[in-house]
Each structure stands twice: as C-alpha cells, then as structure tokens.
Design a protein around this nucleic acid. Structure first.
Lengths: 146, 146
DNA sequence: CTTAGTGCAAAACATTTGCAAACCA
DNA sequence: TGGTTTGCAAATGTTTTGCACTAAG
C-alpha cells in the first residue's frame, strides 16, 4: 500500500467518511495513473475490466467527494468530459497543463510563476486571487520534431 | 447597426456562409451582453423571450460556426456548460478571467503577461505555446468589501 | 446496530444529428 | 433555382438522483 493511500484513510476518517473498497480502488487507480488525467468513464471502464462490479454512479460520487476533500483536482480540456488529477500536496496552487493540439497529450508543469501577475491583478482590479488554472495550447516536443 | 455587426457580415461572406436573421440575432445578443459570458441555453432563452422562434440547435450551430471563424471564444468555468465571449480582435491571445468564488461574477483582464512564462515552458519542456487560457479564482473587490 | 455507501435504472442536462421545410444569394 | 440553413424531434453522451439493499464503524 502506497503512502498516498494511507493519506486517503486518514483524510476520510478526519472528515467522517467511511473507507470502502470502492473508494480505495478508485484512489488507487488515480494514484497509479496520475499522468493519464482520467475521466469518470475511463475509471469506470478500467474498474469494470478488473471485475470489481463498481457502478458508474459510485465513480462520480467518489470523485466528487475526493475533490471536496481537495485530494484530487478537476481539469477541463474541452474534450467533452471532466478529468482528474491528484492534488499536489506541496502546493496550494494547481499544476499548469501543456495541451498538445497535435497528439492531444497533456503534460504537467509544476512551476508557480504567476505570483507577480496575481499581485498586479490585485492592484489593478482589486481582485484577491486564491487559486488559478492555466492551460497552454501548442505543439509538444515530440510532435514538433516529427 | 454596430461596427461589430458589419464585421460579421464581412466575415460570413469571406467564408461563404450566408448571413441569416438568426445568425445576426445571435451575434447581436453576444455583442450587447459580452460581459455576461452567455451560454447556449441562456442565448436560446433570451431569444425565446423576444419571440424570435429560433431553435436551440441553431444556437449551437451558430456558436460553433462563430468559434470556427474565431469571432467568439469558448470559456469554461466548470459550471456545467460552455460559455462564450467575443474574441478580442487586437490580440491573438485570449482574455484572462477573474472568477469570484463568492458571487460567481466573471471579470476580464486583457493583459498578456505570460510571455516570459511561455518562453520558459519552451526552454524547459520543448513545448511550443500557441495560446493559453488562464483563470484566477478568488474574491472580487465588491465581495471583499462587503 | 445504525447510518452511510452502493448498484441499478431512470432522470436530468447539455449537445448533436437526421430530415423535411424554408430561405438566402 | 439550388444549395444552405433552419426548426423540430429524436438521439447521444455525461452526470445526477431515487430507492432498496449492503456494509463499515
């Protein structure tokens, strides 16, 4: 059992949620495939292949709960469904995403370089920024070379 | 008729689309309510109140066409539907959005201050950025004061 | 035990599509 | 007139919900 799964159990207990096999299985899947940015349907299909008998409603309810606990984060790349990624426990801010318009791959960059921009937003707009989501669209290294 | 509507007619002719009353009405609505970031359903309901008889399918088809022509731009604030905004003809890049988690308002900021970050992304990840979408979440001036 | 969690099926939305009728160029 | 465009309704795809059953604490 990985370190991250122990976190799950603690988090659920702290929030008076129960640890069930289904929730564990979904969290495991997200942990093992974090770079895939899985959607609810993809998770459901992967669990079905393992004959876990977990229903699609449970997948949606679990993802919603995990997001409420800030263990995972929504990402939306306008492909018709919401995708999820483990939250970065070291950062209050989210990953930034590089979305390749050629092959559709999604890379993460973890830099948090928007602080000066956020300060400017506060000064110019009086808007207090707590979080941001940044997506860069372009061509990834692999596609660019080929 | 506003300057922007003349642009629409030109754009449609240039792309061998026909200018119809429905397309004009939808573009007018978007122009008059640009700061509202309207969704397809909101546009449909507003047109229905005016008894224009425009169908929801036409709204979706028109929005899709206008986006293809780069006259409008999708924005997604994870509220269950896609919203649209007039493209800024002076900028190849999109508006950034300030989304208030208190009152739900969406403000635009037009600054294009991510260029140094994009350069860094190219150097560190070999990713060629063509466009970006940035959303800042926080508390707007009005909510912060009240 | 007792309440929260689950699977199933139906419902609810957002969006897309097929098609005959209407309309622009 | 002839090919687009439209409205309608049906279809699609994603997500949510009601409910009886199950299981965690």
């Amino acid at each position: 059992m990985s370190k991250r799964n122990i976190d799950l159990k603690e988090q659920l207990n702290n929030s008076s949620y129960k640890l069930t096999g289904q929730r564990q299985a979904i969290m495991d899947l997200l942990t093992e495939n974090n770079s895939e940015h899985l959607s609810a349907d993809e998770i459901y299909k992967m669990l079905s292949e393992k004959n876990t008998g977990i229903g699609i409603a449970t997948v949606y309810r679990t993802l919603s709960m995990l997001e409420k606990l800030k263990l995972i984060t929504k990402i939306n790349i306008d492909d018709g469904c919401v995708r999820y990624q483990l939250s970065d426990p070291r950062s209050e801010h989210e990953h930034h995403h590089l979305i390749c318009e050629c092959c559709g791959c999604i890379q993460d960059i973890k830099d948090d370089l928007l602080e000066s921009l956020e300060k400017q937003v506060l000064v110019e707009n009086g808007f207090h920024v707590y979080n941001h989501k940044v997506k860069f669209y372009g061509i990834c290294k692999k596609c660019y070379i080929e």
